[in-house]
């Protein structure tokens, strides 16, 4: 069964007939070919599917497509819409904060909200903030360093 929903996706107004029994994750991947968000567990335990919905980080595997009406969603693809990388993306590359890359889009989206709410987080605050995003490759150290480095960059840009 499909239902018409209107929502904002990566800054653009979208009108979409969404299959109702579909999660936001599946809708993004199947209907919009936005495959940056990944399914790692389908149960809200790994964070690989993290997107920003109405300004907060959510597991897109635990949101129904039907709930989207009137809401705003940003995916990893939305961070470099103008062809320019977000400072977080630059920092992840520069600090080697990624290995296999499968957790990376979700991790960056979580970090994006974290820095919005707390522009200069301490190491402990970063650790707590990204603890819902599992990474099996890096051991997290370089991810934390990348987020700190991006925080400095945002700060410098704002000054």
């Amino acid at each position: 069964m499909k239902q018409l929903i209107n929502f904002k996706l990566n800054g653009e107004e979208v009108e979409h007939y969404a299959p109702l029994n579909r999660t936001l994750l599946k809708m993004l991947r199947e209907d919009f070919d936005l495959t940056g968000a990944k399914e790692g567990c389908g149960a809200g335990e790994c964070g690989a599917c993290t997107v920003i919905m109405d300004g907060v980080a959510v597991n897109s595997c635990l949101v129904l497509a039907a709930e989207l009406d009137g809401r705003e969603v940003t995916t990893i693809e939305g961070l470099s819409m103008d062809g320019k990388l977000d400072p977080l993306q630059v920092a992840f590359v520069n600090e080697a904060a990624l290995q296999c890359g499968y957790c990376t889009p979700g991790m960056i989206m979580t970090a994006k909200v974290l820095l919005k709410n707390n522009p200069q987080p301490s190491e402990d605050e970063i650790k707590e903030g990204i603890s819902g995003n599992l990474c099996r490759c890096t051991g997290y150290k370089k991810i934390i360093e990348a987020i700190q480095s991006a925080a400095d960059k945002y700060q410098a840009e704002n000054e």
Binding site: G44, E45, G47, T50, V56, A57, V58, N59, L62, V63, T110, G129, S131, G132, N133
Partner: peptide, 9 residues
């Protein structure tokens, strides 16, 4: 409870 993503929902 859960992760930040879970707690937001």
């Amino acid at each position: 409870v859960g992760s930040i993503q879970i707690r937001n929902r």
